[in-house]
């Protein structure tokens, strides 16, 4: 509990900044919708018929003129990328920052097992993700109420849920990597999140690359798919959960054996 409290306190500013930025961007997208909406119905067809570009962002599957469709693409990208970056940074720094800043020696010479350190740090990261998503979902709901839209709440909930699971997976994979590194790791985390995002774009472009959806958490987080189909693609989600478990297991295994320099 002490480590969780300490982690939450240490990550407070970062959490507030990321939450504020993501929520602000989402609210901004939502507030410009009423003005764009009327024009959108006219240009929706154009957006849907831009070939590969439309496919890459899933704009061929949804009606861009409807709020849900607009939200899935515009807001999906904001929450998807923003959330993935935050989750990656959270995961990749969790264990490695202690070694980089030489505080691991302080922490690990107290009567607390390494298993407990890993578990508590993981809990703190998950808690921060939960707080970010609750705040962002709350501000989104408020913004939607203000502009007077009545979207399909279940589909929006599914979207938020899938983004949350995606953040958990990104965080878990980076958390596993964090146990292996002791240097500055932010670049690796951001790189991993960006890679996941672009793998999904490539997978959307051609059927030959569709297998990539199994590898990236964005595979089951495609807002356009969720809005169009009303469900999260379970086959991709299953692989995501496997990667999540593998990341967490790697962190426990490696950190317990690691020599702290």
């Amino acid at each position: 509990m002490t480590v969780i409290k300490h982690e939450l306190k240490a990550g407070k500013n970062s959490l507030i900044i990321w939450t504020a930025i993501i929520a602000f961007m989402l609210a901004l997208c939502i507030f410009i919708y009423p003005q764009m909406g009327s024009q959108m119905s006219e240009i929706s067809g154009m957006f849907a018929n831009m070939g590969s570009f439309s496919a890459a962002f899933g704009m061929d599957k949804i009606n861009f003129g409807e709020f849900s469709g607009f939200f899935a693409v515009e807001c999906g990208n904001v929450l998807g990328l923003g959330g993935a970056f935050f989750a990656a940074l959270l995961g990749i720094s969790a264990l490695s920052k202690e070694e980089k800043e030489h505080t691991a020696e302080f922490l690990l010479t107290h009567p607390i097992s390494r298993t407990s350190v890993v578990f508590n740090k993981l809990c703190a990261a998950v808690l921060q993700l939960i707080l970010l998503n609750l705040a962002v979902a709350g501000i989104t709901a408020l913004s939607v109420l203000i502009i007077g839209e009545k979207p399909d709440v279940y589909k929006l909930f599914l979207m938020f849920l899938s983004y949350f699971i995606m953040q958990l997976e990104t965080c878990a994979v980076c958390f596993g990597a964090s146990a292996f590194i002791s240097a500055n790791s932010a670049g690796i985390g951001l790189g991993a999140a960006a890679l996941f995002y672009f793998l999904n774009i490539v997978a959307n472009l051609t059927e030959k690359a569709e297998f990539l959806k199994y590898l990236t958490p964005f595979g089951y987080t495609d807002g356009a798919d969720i809005i169009a189909n009303g469900k999260i693609e379970l086959k991709y989600l299953a692989f995501g959960l496997i990667f999540t478990v593998m990341g967490i297991a790697a962190a426990f295994y490696k950190y317990n054996k690691k020599d702290i320099a």
Binding site: A10, E101, T103, E105, F106, T109
Partner: peptide, 10 residues
Amino acid sequence: YMPSEAAFYP
């Protein structure tokens, strides 16, 4: 334990 390099959370 007192380490040679006293590093704490800055």
